Amino acid sequence: MASRSTFATAPKPLRADDLACFRGGRMVFERLSFTLDPGELLYLRGKNGSGKSTLLRLIAGYLRIHGGTLMVGDDAWWRGDAALSEALIYAGHDNALKPVLTLRENARELTRLMTGHAVGDVALADAADVFGLTGLLDQPVRYFSSGQRHRSNLMRFAYLKRPLWLMDEPTVGLDTENREALAGLMRAHLDAGGMIIAATHDPIGVEGAMIDMRDYQPKVSLEEAWL
C-alpha cells in the first residue's frame, strides 16, 4: 500500500486565469481558468485534439503560454522556472525509458536528473511493487511488453516525491488490478496534500473536479468562417 508522501517542496495552489495556447498554426484553447488546491484532483476531458495533452505540456514547461497567467502560490509561472520543475512530475504518452537500460537503471537515471540524488533501493522496490514490476527491475526495458513499459513509466509517481502530478492517459493498457493500484496511489497522494491533473477518457475511480476542453475551444467568427 502506498504511504503518505514527504514532498521535496511544499504543495502550493496552482491557479490559471484566461490561459491560451497557440500550437501548430492554430489556437488550441483560450479563456481557460481553474484553481487546484493541495489535496485536489482535476480531470481533463474532451475528444482527441481538444487540448488536454497541450495543457499538461504547457504546465510542465514544454510549451509557451500565449495568453493569460499561471500562478504557483503567489509566484507567476514562467517557462524554465527551476522551482516549478522541482514541484512536478509529468508522464506523457511516450514512455521516457531507455531500452538498453534495466528498469532499475532507468529509475536511477531519472531520479539523478530530476533531483541530483540517487533513489534508494527500498523506495524503488516499494514503487515497483505498486505495479507488479518487482521481478522486472533488473531486466532491460527493450524486452518489456507495451503494458509493462507503461506501468514502468507510471512507477515514477511512486518514488519521486513531487506535489504536482501531471498524468496523460494514465489508464491506457492497464488491467483491472493495475487500475486499482493506480487509483490507490492517487488517493494516497491526495491524502498527503498532493495535487493531480489527469487527462483521461476512462474513469479511474478517484473523486475529482473536471474541465471539459470543449468549453475552451476558440470561437470562430462568421467573417473568419468565410475565409
Rank of each mutant, 00 (worst) to 15 (best):
D175H: 06
M1K: 04
A127P: 13
V172E: 15
A60C: 08
F7I: 06
L154S: 09
A96E: 02
S221C: 10
L110G: 03
E177W: 12
E223L: 09
G67M: 05
S3E: 05
I196P: 11
W165N: 05
S50K: 06
H150Q: 12
T6S: 09
P11H: 09
V130C: 12
L36V: 05
A91Q: 12
L227K: 00
S145G: 07
D121N: 13
E105V: 09
G120I: 06
I211A: 02
H93Y: 10
D212E: 08
A183E: 07
S5M: 11
F22L: 04
P11R: 07
V100Y: 14
D191I: 06
L55M: 13
G49Q: 04
V28P: 00
M186L: 15
W165F: 14
S3T: 11
P99V: 13
L42N: 09
L88W: 03
Q148R: 07
L56Y: 01
L124I: 14
L41G: 06
L160P: 10
A181H: 07
A127Q: 08
L154T: 13
A209M: 02
L32A: 01
C21M: 11
H189N: 14
L222R: 06
G116M: 10
A60I: 04
A87R: 10
L101H: 05
D168G: 12
D175I: 09
L185F: 04
A188G: 02
A127Y: 14
T35S: 12
W77K: 02
A96D: 07
L55E: 04
A87N: 05
E223S: 06
V72R: 15
L222A: 15
F29V: 07
A10P: 03
L103A: 07
W77Y: 15
T54V: 13
L166R: 01
T115D: 13
L137T: 07
F144V: 06
R57T: 09
H66P: 00
L110P: 00
M186D: 13
G92T: 13
H201Q: 13
I196S: 04
P203A: 14
